[in-house]
Computed example of a mutant assay.
Amino acid sequence: MPSANAAANAPGSPQEWADAATDYVIRHGLIGLSLRPLAAALGTSDRMLIYRFGNKDSLVAEVLRTSNARATDYVSRLPGSEDPRAAVRDLWAAVSHPAVDGCHRLYVEAAALRLFGQEPYASVVREMNNEWRSAVVDHLTRSGLDGPAALRISILLDAAFVGLRLDLPLGDTDGTKDVGAAVADLAAAVSSLAEKHLDGQPG
C-alpha cells in the first residue's frame, strides 16, 4: 500500500500515468517487469495500476507506444541533414541522445521479445517499427533523397542501428570507438547507395 505522501505525488491524467510508467520501464527494462515495484514507484497499488491500464499487457503496450512517440517526435523535429552521409551520422546521434537513447533501447528489447511471437510485443512492435521508419524516411527525404531511396535506406538503417545497439553494452572504450567506425562505414555505404540510386544504377 503506498504511503499518503506517495499517493499525493501520484500521476493525475492518463498521459501522466503513461509517461510515469514509461520513465520507470526505460530505467528498469521490460524483462522481468513486475507491477508491484512499478506501482510503488508511481505512488499507487498494483490493483489500481491494473484498474488504470486494464491489464499488464495493455500497460506494456501503452509504455511502448509512449516511448516510441517520444523517439519519433524527436527525429521528426531534426532539421534536414546536409546529405545522405550526414543523415546517417545525425540519425545515429539522435538515437544516442539522452532524450531518445532509453526509448531506442526499449524498442530493441521489445523487438527481441517479438521474435518469440509473444504479445503484446508482436503487434505493438510492428506499429512502432512503421512509425519509426516513417520518421526516418521523412528525415532522409528532408536530406535530399526521394521516396523510394529513403524507404530502402530506412530499412537498412533500422537493421544496422538495432545491431549496433545490441553490441554497445558489450563494448568498452575501444568498443565505442568501433561503433563510431561502424557508423562512419554505414554512412559511406548509404552515400554510395544513394548515388547509385540517383544515377539509376542497380544495386
Rank of each mutant, 00 (worst) to 15 (best):
H104G: 09
A7P: 00
S3N: 07
R77V: 07
D83F: 01
R85A: 10
R114A: 15
S191V: 00
G203P: 04
D90M: 07
V179Y: 02
N55Y: 10
A150D: 04
A112K: 07
L145N: 01
T22L: 06
A69S: 13
E16M: 06
V137A: 02
A18W: 00
V75H: 01
P2I: 14
A87K: 06
A86V: 04
A184L: 09
A20W: 00
R133V: 02
S154D: 05
S3I: 11
D57A: 11
R77L: 11
T173K: 05
A182P: 01
W92G: 04
G144A: 09
G54T: 09
N9E: 14
L193N: 01
A150P: 03
A111M: 08
T176E: 15
A71M: 15
V95E: 09
G12R: 15
S45V: 10
R47P: 00
A69I: 05
C103N: 15
A150F: 02
H197I: 09
A99H: 08
V125C: 04
E109V: 01
S58R: 11
G147A: 06
Q201R: 13
L186H: 10
L193I: 10
T44F: 04
V162N: 06
H28Q: 14
E119H: 06
A41R: 08
S123T: 15
H139V: 05
L193G: 02
M1R: 12
G203D: 11
S123Y: 07
H104K: 02
L59M: 08
A110G: 09
P148A: 08
A20M: 03
R70W: 13
V63T: 10
A39D: 14
D57S: 10
D19M: 03
A40C: 00
S45G: 13
G200N: 10
L186V: 11
P2H: 05
N129S: 11
D174P: 00
L140H: 06
T141R: 13
G29W: 12
